[in-house]
Write a protein that binds this DNA or RNA. Structure first.
Lengths: 247, 247
DNA sequence: CGACTCATTGATCACCATCAAAGAACGTGG
DNA sequence: CCACGTTCTTTGATGGTGATCAATGAGTCG
């Protein structure tokens, strides 16, 4: 699960073997590798980026699941988006004057770390990588846009349906799948915090959809039994995604 | 209100005189100007970017107010964020395979237009401008993050308080202000759609906060009477923003 | 003046939050 | 190996926030 070690770690990056990611040119790969300053490991439940302290590093999530969140001062928490392998984190800090979000690991997680102060240098040295980072930022915003529609306009059943389909699709995309079951390491508190629902109501809604036979969750794995029904219920039809850059 | 015409329109850009924006180098300004293909005018209530058809152009909003939105298939609408002069629009389309958002003008609006197919060329020619566009994208995502916290975790009074402070601050920043009153061209349907509330409940909540003397709205202008109270109610304390790039 | 849009208010109801408690799963230590 | 603590899930009961329905008022335009 840990990123490769040694002289040219990015050459052997397991993520790059996935269809989900674009192959960079040799030059680009070398630049990425020289931008990289090492790996980091964070265990399940721990903080990757503190909500109120800007991180001196940027990361690409290499393995595991994480999420971005914000909390109000009385403790109410909103999960903004979930992070899977290949996602780039910490970019917002660069421009937000400290008013940003936290990132927490759901499972044990490994990350590739990059020094924030060299971000501009990366754009300068390889404009294509700058373009790719913008791409990743735009994709990330699209996720939040979708989540905002969910919390703003969908009811509980629709929210759950949308989230299950969304996470299932993303897990498949990066190979977190076996025999039609996708990794699903979340507890109901995570789901509630992502959907803007209470824990109790999240539970009741999940059970209702499960009794209808739309999906099953077992031992941290999710299987979608009725994708059409869940898509229709959530009014959420995602097309297969183009391959994206991987920094 | 329209952008300057002539040979070197960006030299006389009124927006660039505001403290809110960073001054580009001469080279950068020339590159921006050559990237620009003209101006466009859209009247209040009309569509700037269609929700389901990717736009062949990118825009910088030059004057007026607009908003980004998504609708569900049964017509429920969620406003994702509001746009003010200086905001850059259409970037997401570049990477989203058509699954994107619409943009609609609240007031009459003018825009500077840029050809999408030359975006990569811009990054290539002037990496600094690529960096700036990433900056703008990250700032935009921060707005959506905040709105997601609002719809997910704030109650009606908190939502309204947060939105009023947010829009007031942003309007002041770009000079849409006179004697402590900020432009406020929104109707209650806009506010409801942005906050994930019904029109009726939005009205009742607005009236309640107004009766408490926290703010006043009159003829399309907003005055905040009790900024501290609104900030505390919304649990939303925004620090003054650094100057941002202007493309 | 009539048509239209938008703001306002009251009445009713449902979805979801909150409160409370018990069950299931798991790890730890006695 | 079992008792116990911890975490997570599940269910029932109750209440409130906000949705929905309905209607009137206010302002504007042709």
């Amino acid at each position: 699960m840990a990123p490769p070690q040694g002289a040219n770690p990015c050459d052997q990056c397991a993520l790059r073997r996935l269809d989900a990611f674009l192959a960079p040119s040799g030059d680009e790969l070398r630049t990425i590798q020289s931008f990289r300053v090492g790996a980091r490991r964070v265990e399940a439940g721990s903080s990757i980026i503190d909500e109120h302290r800007p991180s001196p590093q940027l990361f690409t999530l290499y393995s595991g699941w994480a999420f971005r969140y914000k909390t109000l001062s009385d403790g109410r928490r909103q999960i903004l988006s979930f992070l899977l392998p290949g996602d780039f984190l910490g970019l917002q800090d660069e421009f937000a004057d400290g008013q940003t979000h936290g990132v927490e690991a759901v499972t044990d997680v490994t990350l590739c770390a990059f020094p924030r102060e060299r971000l501009w240098g990366l754009f300068h040295a390889q404009p294509k990588l700058g373009y790719d980072i913008t791409w990743l930022a735009a994709r990330e915003e699209k996720l939040v846009d979708d989540n905002l529609v969910t919390t703003g306009r969908r009811n509980a059943g629709e929210r759950v349906a949308m989230l299950l389909m969304h996470l299932y699709r993303r897990a498949l995309r990066v190979g977190m799948e076996r025999d039609g079951w996708a990794e699903f390491p979340f507890n109901q508190q995570h789901i509630a915090d992502a959907l803007g629902l209470s824990l109790v109501h999240t539970n009741k809604t999940l059970r209702r959809l499960q009794r209808l036979g739309l999906y099953r969750i077992d031992g941290g794995w999710l299987r979608i039994m009725e994708p059409r029904a869940l898509e229709a219920l959530g009014d959420y039809f995602e097309r297969p995604m183009r391959p994206t850059p991987l920094i």
